[in-house]
């Protein structure tokens, strides 16, 4: 097995999974891992609160990429969780001794190499362990959202792997049980895109897909524009953080999915997908417009105007609906 190669990625889970697949011999880009696993989505789950704010996500739930790549790549992934940190650490050490690279689910808050301002209690951050320094006992980690590999002391990593709360990792680690196979791109790519189209357009409940965007727009429009606006501003700031900051590659993963479509156009020999990728870049720019408008209101450069933000979001919903309908027709 050759030495592990770290590559800077924009999202943790697609970064870890593409690195694992590459390490085991199949060249795979991060956007391809993201798109093949049908990881793009939009979800609005106001009944789940993170730090008092409702859950909004621009992608499928954690572990969707770990699971979603198994079928297209013929790659069985083993996942294990543990009752105690001691057992979790022992198992990780044993796997590293076998020369494996191991994916880990962690809480950002307890990882000391993270910048202080980004250390929130977010429990679904993925990193890859590829070795251990014999002298200090530090783990050698490839955290895909960092430019260079990092190190983490054993006690800190144990805390991060066994943090509790929403999406508690319970020490989750994962590694491949075999070799990934080069798939028949002409089959797996349309299948993966069809699944994303289905999720975005035809989820039965209006909490996932383009209809969920309209629900968020309605929630914004209900915010009071005057009086005590602190809570309302925190809410729109939270939306922007989920969209831009949590390793999305910008525009709530829309730019990354556009990169997937562009690459898929070549591999599956469907040039129409490349044009649709360009169209999705424009939609991603629309998301960033929303982020900019929200940030200006938070800073007080513009007056807080919930109706204007709601209108931007409704436009995004309409654009994405038309986009995914076109994507379906192109298959």
């Amino acid at each position: 097995m050759s030495a592990f190669q770290h590559r800077h990625a924009s999202h943790c889970e697609s970064g870890v999974m593409s690195a694992i697949v590459r390490h085991y011999g199949l060249p795979l880009s991060e956007p391809m891992a993201f798109g093949l696993a049908s990881a793009l989505s939009f979800a609005w789950l106001p009944f789940i609160k993170l730090g008092g704010l409702p859950l909004v996500a621009y992608r499928m739930p954690p572990r969707a990429i770990v699971r979603g790549l198994q079928k297209p790549l013929g790659l069985r992934m083993r996942t294990e969780t543990f009752r105690t940190p001691a057992r979790g650490a022992a198992r990780l050490d044993a796997l590293l001794d076998e020369g494996k690279v191991v994916g880990l689910q962690t809480s950002v808050f307890w990882l000391p190499y993270f910048p202080q301002d980004l250390r929130f209690h977010f429990n679904a951050h993925n990193v890859l362990a590829y070795g251990r320094d014999p002298a200090s006992g530090d783990y050698l980690l490839s955290d895909p959202v960092f430019e260079e590999p990092v190190r983490c002391a054993a006690a800190d990593l144990a805390r991060a792997r066994f943090a509790r709360g929403v999406l508690a990792p319970r020490g989750l680690l994962y590694y491949p049980a075999g070799q990934p196979q080069e798939p028949d791109w002409g089959t797996v790519i349309p299948a993966a895109i069809r699944k994303t189209v289905r999720v975005m357009l035809r989820t039965p409940l209006p909490i996932v897909g383009t209809r969920a965007m309209e629900r968020v727009a309605a929630a914004i429009e209900r915010l009071p524009a005057s009086g005590d606006t602190r809570q309302g501003l925190l809410f729109i700031g939270h939306l922007v953080r989920m969209q831009e900051e949590i390793g999305t590659g910008g525009g709530g993963f829309r730019f990354m999915y556009a990169a997937f479509l562009q690459e898929a156009a070549g591999l599956a020999q469907r040039p129409a997908l490349a044009e649709l990728g360009d169209r999705l870049v424009d939609i991603g720019d629309g998301w960033r417009e929303f982020a900019l408008a929200a940030a200006r209101m938070i800073r007080g450069r513009d007056a807080f105007a919930p109706s204007a933000l709601g209108a931007l979001l409704r436009r995004q919903a309409a654009d994405e609906r038309a986009f995914f309908q076109a994507l379906e027709r192109a298959l």
């Binding site: 301002d117 700031g237 922007v240 953080r241 960033r288 982020a291 900019l292 940030a295």
Partner: peptide, 17 residues
């Protein structure tokens, strides 16, 4: 991928939180 040194928008929303 292009490495980004950061966007003021993100700084604003992170600082806010």
């Amino acid at each position: 991928t292009v490495a980004s040194a950061g966007w003021e928008v993100e700084e604003i929303v992170t600082r806010q939180a």
